[in-house]
Amino acid sequence: MRKVLYMVRHHIKMDLRSNHNIMSLVVFALASTYTAFQVLQGRPDPNTWNAIALIVLIFTAFNSAARVLPEDMSSVRSYMHWTVPPKVMIVARTLHQSFIMSSLSCLLLLALGFFMGLAEMSNENIAGFLLGMVLTSVGLSAALTLISALSARAGAGYGLTAVLGLPLTIPIVLISTEFGTDMVSGRMLSSSIHNLYYLGGLSVSISIFGYILFPYLWRS
């Protein structure tokens, strides 16, 4: 556990040290929201709003997962291989990725609210939507961390992550779009809460499989 926390802290430190990585994600999210705002000229209808929010979230997650982490480079990897157990590695990477994506989704919601309003949702719905976005980003992070490690090991880059990742993340996307539609159309949070349970369950099960499978990838 202490090792995991140390690794997460290490990852964040690395991110802060070369902050163009994080900044590129922030700029990506803001720029796409702004572009949508420019095209739509003001306040879109709730479904469009929902679509924009989820599209930007998913593409940000893909961009974030496709970053080249230092331990994917062969020189650093052989060092890490002897110092960090693979299970610690995958947990730390998933946590770090989830943390970044969750904070980005909060930022994204702020940006959306600033540019395009909040689709006339009630406070409860906004909270629910944010919760849905955070859970979605956790699920996406869990799946994409494994996929990006896989494609890094295969020696292919961003393209392979996208090709392998998009179909695999479809279950998460389906549930979160359904939940998002419920929220923007003003349904009670309690009547749609089962979608949040499904999202949580999916994230947890994907993380567990990542935890089991990653050591085999790490070994060489």
């Binding site: 896989l150 295969a154 020696g155 292919a156 392979l160 090709v163 392998l164 179909p167």
Partner: peptide
């Protein structure tokens, strides 16, 4: 994707 993965792995 499996087929693509196999083909693109170097």
């Amino acid at each position: 994707g499996y087929i693509i993965l196999r083909k693109s792995s170097d």
